[in-house]
Design a protein around this nucleic acid. Structure first.
Length: 432
RNA sequence: GGAGUGAUGGCCGAGUUGGUCGAAGGCGCUCGCCUGCUAAGCGAGUAUACGCUGUAAAGGCGUAUCGAGGGUUCGAAUCCCUCUCACUCCGCCA
């Protein structure tokens, strides 16, 4: 959510942002509707407040008169009418506020000046690459074939138990998932992040706080008849940890590494990535979340990218870093980098981490503030996050990059201790 | 799930026969005074949001806020309704 005052005073800044983001006409119209409603709202407010000031004054006269044992009936009669007027105006104000609030909650964030112009993901510049794509003496398999041959991924039974877009990890596959979780959390805990294991169900206010609602209702799962949503990422509960709080300056920056399952409806993506671990209704993820001062959030963003890259480097997975252009930027972000890992089976780079700065967009929605000194006014913090990493896609990358000619998978060196010393996943290990 | 109690400012805590209550008192905090230092003491101050006005900043006026929302009333922290949360007891449960 953006500052209504800023939008009112500088509407062209928003208009320009909407155009840079290639927003739909619908969104552009919504912004103009906001400006219009905001103007009306201020008129109503001025009017009703004047009436209330008058009523408050007369009310004092009534009290005074009663204390003196005088008759106040004529004053009361007059105020009865004013009361009705106020009630009618207040109702109108509430309606206006609802329209305004709804617009504000659905208007996207302003791209940072440094974000490259572009219409779509095709124009996202690649910033750098790291690691060499492995060379195979055979045709590398995709991860779902490998996983099923090894008996560590079971998509068929997952479909029976739950449905499509689910997986069951078994044996060393389950163990590898667990190893990845522990490795990634330990690694970030060693880099200054506090480990957090949040709830996987959150209330609506939390979903609105991070900007997942009201605009993206279709993307998330909701528990029937309850005010509970399955989290689409740990970002939601972890960012909302400090909702409605005023933090002391000394507490910043706050760095959390949250582990959770993530649940996504994947509405609108039917037919895409239907096989394998790339696009599931449930996957696990270690998510980095930062709360910073406004002046340090862009440095913090670079730091998050580095922390996520470090995981890929430790796992010796080839990857590249791309910067998201204005037209591909998500609803909430001012600036975003994606890390893409090389998948030999698919012969392409796939997103494995996404690191974003939201500036005060979430902080304003979730009312997360800080005070520079005890006497200074609270200011909104900046929030950021980045995946480090998505476990399912990491496993896919490991299976595809570490496969051998005989169909076995070497275990990345850093994971061997987490795998109880297992160095290779193969047919011999089937009966774990 | 059943029964009950409660929710007031940074904290504790008055106020529930509706009117002078943005809210006593205390603690904490800030500034000043005092003291050779510390402690004690004295004085002043100490919420947030929004609107209007105004400025280089500030300020001024107004409105709202006593868990949240709605209602009754000329007027609500105080009365009514709904909800949320916390605590206690019972039941159930990993």
């Amino acid at each position: 959510m953006l500052d209504a005052k800023l939008l009112r005073q500088n509407p062209d800044r928003m208009r320009q942002a909407l155009s840079r983001r290639r927003e739909s006409q619908e969104t552009i119209d919504m912004f103009e509707q906001f400006l219009d409603e905001d103007r009306k709202w201020r008129e109503y407010v001025a009017e009703t407040e004047q009436l209330k000031a008058n009523r408050n004054a007369v009310t004092q006269q009534v009290a005074q008169a009663k204390r003196n044992g005088e008759d106040a009936q004529s004053l009361i009669e007059k105020m009865r009418l004013v009361g009705d007027q106020i009630q009618a105006l207040d109702a109108q104000i509430r309606e206006s506020e609802q329209v305004i609030e709804d617009c504000l909650l659905r208007l996207p964030n302003l791209p940072h000046d440094s974000v490259p112009e572009g219409a779509s993901e095709e124009e996202n510049p690649e910033l750098r690459r790291h690691g060499e794509a492995p060379v195979f003496s055979f045709e590398p398999k995709n991860h779902w074939d490998l996983g099923q041959l090894l008996g560590i991924l079971d998509f068929e039974r997952a479909a029976k138990v739950s449905g499509s877009r689910f997986v069951i990890y078994k044996g060393l596959g389950a163990r590898l998932e667990r190893a990845l979780m522990n490795f990634m959390i330990d690694m970030q805990a060693g880099r200054g992040y506090e480990e957090v294991w949040p709830p996987y169900l959150v209330n609506r206010a939390s979903m609105v706080g991070t900007g997942n609602l009201p605009k993206f209702e279709d993307d998330v799962f909701r528990v029937a008849d309850e005010d509970f949503y399955l989290i689409p990422t740990a970002e939601v509960p972890v960012t909302n940890l400090h909702r409605d709080e005023i933090l002391a300056l000394e507490m910043l920056p706050i760095n959390y590494a949250g582990f959770s399952s993530s649940f996504r409806s994947e509405a609108g993506s039917s037919g895409r990535d239907t096989r394998g671990l790339i696009r599931l209704h449930q996957f696990q993820k270690v998510e980095l979340v930062k709360f910073t001062t406004p002046e340090s959030s862009y440095d913090a963003l670079e730091a998050i990218v580095e922390d996520a890259e470090a995981v890929l480097r430790a796992l010796r997975l080839p990857y590249r870093v791309i910067e998201i252009c204005t037209g591909d930027l998500g609803f909430k972000e001012t600036k975003k980098y994606d890390l893409e890992v090389w998948l030999p089976g698919a012969k392409m780079y796939r997103e494995i981490s996404s690191c974003s700065n939201f500036e005060d967009f979430q902080a304003r929605r979730a009312n997360i503030r800080f005070r520079r000194t005890e006497k200074s006014k609270p200011e909104f913090v900046h929030t950021l996050n980045g995946s480090a990493l998505a476990l399912g896609r990491t496993m896919a990358a490991i299976l595809e990059n570490y496969q051998e000619a005989d169909g076995t998978i070497r275990v990345p060196e850093v994971l061997i201790p987490y795998m109880g010393g297992v160095t290779r996943m193969g047919y011999a290990n089937e009966r774990i």
